[in-house]
Design a protein around this nucleic acid. Structure first.
Length: 225
DNA sequence: GCGACAG
DNA sequence: ATCTTGTCGC
């Protein structure tokens, strides 16, 4: 699929990165319902001590969740992990893998925050701008925001707010497991982001596409060492 | 100044 | 994220 190269990833200082996030935040569209979803994609990365980043992107059918495409790749780590700047560490490799997709997905799930970010530009939102299709940020823990613990039943959720503004949802995808932190990335609304996350949460706490991408990159990393 | 802090 | 075995609970 085509990737919009909105800006360069080369030689960026933290100040450059922050400036990019502030500028791009204005282009994010938090709206859309995502009907007629036939293909869902997701990606994930793994790292090794020698500063190598491994990545995997998977494309599955909905609602069967059959794997149609699987792409893996690796590169040298180019940016450290700094809370709030995860994009600059993970997006380059992820985008190069999404670019290999022959089929354009109708929905993309990203491992990280969407707009639930200090500058409303988490990894999910940032990648959503480069892909130009509905993207959801699915994080396993909180970056910013306050919330009430959702009830233990599957499907129960509560709002994630920051400065009295709704920035995402805290969702229990299975009974008695730690909740997930969902927020719109780009071109999708809160309700749709929540609904699709639950529709994709079948066997595990993590949505099917993301889980498959995670397993794939874990195995790929093992095979490369 | 102090604590928090996606992966 | 990574390292790392067994083990407690639904």
């Amino acid at each position: 699929m085509e990737i919009r190269k909105i800006h360069s990833w080369e030689n960026l200082t933290l100040a450059d990165a922050k400036s990019i996030q502030n500028n791009l935040a204005r282009d994010i569209i938090v709206d859309g319902v995502s009907k007629n979803v036939n293909y869902i994609a997701a990606g994930d990365l793994a790292f090794s001590k020698d500063s190598t980043a491994f990545g995997a992107v998977v494309l599955m059918t909905y609602p069967e969740f059959e794997i149609v495409e699987l792409h893996t790749g690796k590169e040298r780590v180019r940016f450290p992990y700094i809370p709030g700047y995860l994009t600059f560490r993970e997006a380059p490799l992820l985008l190069s893998l999404f670019e290999k997709l022959q089929i354009v997905p109708d929905l993309v799930m990203v491992d990280g925050q969407g707009i639930a970010h200090p500058r409303k530009m988490g990894l999910g939102a940032h990648i959503g701008l480069f892909l130009g299709i509905p993207t959801i940020g699915v994080a396993k823990s909180r970056l910013i925001g306050k919330y009430d613990e959702p009830k233990i039943e599957k499907g129960s959720w509560s709002w994630l707010t920051h400065k009295s503004e709704k920035i995402g949802m805290v969702v229990r995808t299975r009974k008695n497991v730690k909740p997930l932190f969902i927020s719109p990335g780009n071109l999708i609304g809160f309700e749709s982001a929540l609904n699709w996350t639950l529709k994709c949460s079948i066997k595990y706490r993590i949505p099917e596409p993301t889980k498959i991408a995670h397993n794939t990159v874990t195995n790929f990393k093992k095979s490369q060492i």
